[in-house]
Amino acid sequence: MNKRNRWVYLLLAIVIMGAGLLSRKLTAYLPHIVNIYAGDSLWALMIFVSAGFLFPAWKTKTIGMFAIVFCYFIEFTQLYHAPCIDDIRKNALGGLILGYGFLWRDILAYSIGVAAGMSWEYYSYRFKRSA
């Protein structure tokens, strides 16, 4: 992967963040399967593009590995419930970042989000190279 355009990745992170928050507000209008996976998949995708913004020279595989390890780490920390951490989770922003409770399905959702980001990068890189 060539060096990423940081402005594109910043814009993508903002749009994805908005879509993820919107997906949490529209649960009454979305199919159940979308409600289960959309927010967490978009969160993982946002982590992927944010890592691309922070580390524009890294290879796609490295960004993907960083993002998936980060997402899994956050998910597994949800098994830990110290009062100080749970107080952070009670705050809306703290809850969005740290989550509330461990779910195996979130691991699948994170995998989907990071895979989508990696696929998009590979596809866009191939498209640019062939043009």
Rank of each mutant, 00 (worst) to 15 (best):
I47N: 00
L26C: 11
A82V: 07
I74W: 04
Y80H: 06
I85V: 15
Y122Q: 10
L45T: 02
G95A: 07
I74C: 03
T27K: 15
A116S: 14
Q78W: 08
G99E: 06
S23K: 10
G52L: 04
F66G: 03
L54Y: 08
V34T: 12
Y123G: 05
S111C: 14
L21N: 06
L45F: 06
Y110A: 08
L79E: 08
D86V: 02
F70N: 07
E121F: 11
F48V: 00
C84I: 12
A51L: 13
Y123E: 00
R24P: 09
H81V: 01
Y72N: 06
Y80D: 00
M46E: 05
A38N: 01
Y72R: 01
S50C: 07
P83L: 03
Y72T: 11
K25F: 08
A51T: 09
G39C: 02
I107L: 15
G113V: 11
F70A: 14
V69N: 10
A115I: 11
A116M: 14
I107T: 12
F70G: 04
Y123A: 14
R105I: 13
L30P: 01
A51P: 00
L79Y: 08
F55T: 05
P56M: 09
P31G: 09
V69I: 15
L54W: 12
R24M: 11
S50N: 00
R89T: 02
G94E: 07
L22D: 06
S119A: 15
K61G: 12
C84K: 07
V34W: 12
K90Y: 02
T77V: 08
L26G: 03
D87T: 10
L45R: 06
W120P: 00
I63F: 02
